[in-house]
Amino acid sequence: GVRVRALYDYDGQEQDELSFKAGDELTKLGEEDEQGWCRGRLDSGQLGLYPANYVEAI
């Protein structure tokens, strides 16, 4: 996976979405899909989806 850092807070709206705060680091686990979602893993171990444009590569 690729380490990325959140640029903005994001509150997951669905069960399969991650929630994070600006500045949090997570691991991107795949390329974004056509809707702009990426699969990732928080350092807590939680897996889920997040909007790709909310993070930057570290």
Rank of each mutant, 00 (worst) to 15 (best):
Q35G: 15
L42Y: 00
E25N: 13
G48S: 00
E34I: 11
N53E: 03
D9F: 01
R5Q: 09
A52S: 13
L49R: 14
D33H: 07
A52M: 13
S19Y: 05
L7C: 09
N53D: 03
D16P: 06
E31D: 06
V55C: 13
D43P: 07
Q46I: 12
D43V: 11
A6C: 05
W37Q: 07
D11L: 11
G1T: 13
Q13V: 09
W37S: 08
K28T: 13
D33S: 11
S44P: 02
D24R: 03
A6D: 00
G1K: 15
C38D: 04
G36V: 04
R5I: 15
A52Y: 05
E25I: 10
F20K: 00
L26T: 00
R41Y: 06
K28N: 12
A52H: 10
D16F: 13
Y10D: 02
Y10S: 02
R3N: 03
T27A: 07
A57E: 15
Q15H: 06
G1I: 14
E34G: 15
R3W: 00
P51Q: 08
Q46M: 11
N53W: 08
G48W: 00
Y54G: 04
V4G: 03
L42I: 05
P51T: 02
E14R: 12
L42G: 04
G1C: 10
R41S: 12
E25K: 10
D43K: 11
P51F: 04
V55W: 00
R5A: 07
R5E: 03
L26M: 12
A52K: 12
V55M: 09
I58V: 15
E31A: 09
D9L: 01
K21W: 04
Q15A: 10
E34V: 10
L49A: 10
L29R: 01
Q15M: 10
V4W: 03
A6G: 02
S44R: 05
E17G: 13
L49N: 11
G12Q: 08
V55I: 04
G48C: 00
T27M: 05
L47R: 13
D43S: 10
L7T: 10
K21H: 14
Q35H: 12
R5F: 04
A22R: 12
Y10Q: 05
G12D: 02
R39I: 06
G36Q: 06
E56H: 10
W37H: 14
A52F: 08
E34F: 06
L29F: 11
R41E: 08
G40F: 00
L47Q: 15
Q15N: 10
R3S: 03
A6T: 04
R39M: 11
R39Y: 11
W37I: 14
D33Q: 09
E17M: 12
K21A: 09
L7P: 00
D43H: 05
V4A: 03
G40E: 00
D24N: 07
E17S: 12
A52P: 05
E56L: 04
T27F: 12
K28P: 06
L26W: 14
Y54D: 02
R3G: 02
E14P: 07
Q46N: 09
L42P: 01
R41H: 04
E25C: 14
T27D: 07
G40T: 00
F20V: 02
P51C: 08
R39A: 13
F20L: 07
E34W: 11
G30S: 12
G23R: 05
P51W: 03
D24F: 02
T27P: 01
Y54E: 01
G48Q: 00
L7H: 04
G36Y: 04
D11G: 03
V55T: 15
G40H: 05
L18N: 01
E34D: 11
L7Y: 04
Y10K: 03
A52D: 11
R39T: 10
W37Y: 11
L42V: 07
G12P: 07
E14D: 13
W37N: 14
E32R: 13
Y50T: 03
D24L: 04
E32C: 15
Y50I: 11
E56N: 09
C38Q: 05
G36E: 04
G45T: 03
S44G: 12
C38W: 02
I58W: 04
G45P: 01
Y10E: 02
G45W: 03
D33G: 11
D43T: 05
R39H: 15
V2A: 07
N53F: 15
D33L: 11
G23K: 05
D9A: 11
L47E: 14
G1F: 07
T27V: 11
C38S: 08
G45H: 01
A52V: 11
S44W: 04
D43Q: 09
E32W: 08
F20E: 01
G23D: 05
Y50Q: 02
L7F: 03
P51A: 04
Q15K: 10
K21F: 13
Q15T: 08
Q35S: 13
A22E: 11
E32I: 09
L18T: 01
E56V: 10
F20T: 02
Y8K: 15
I58L: 12
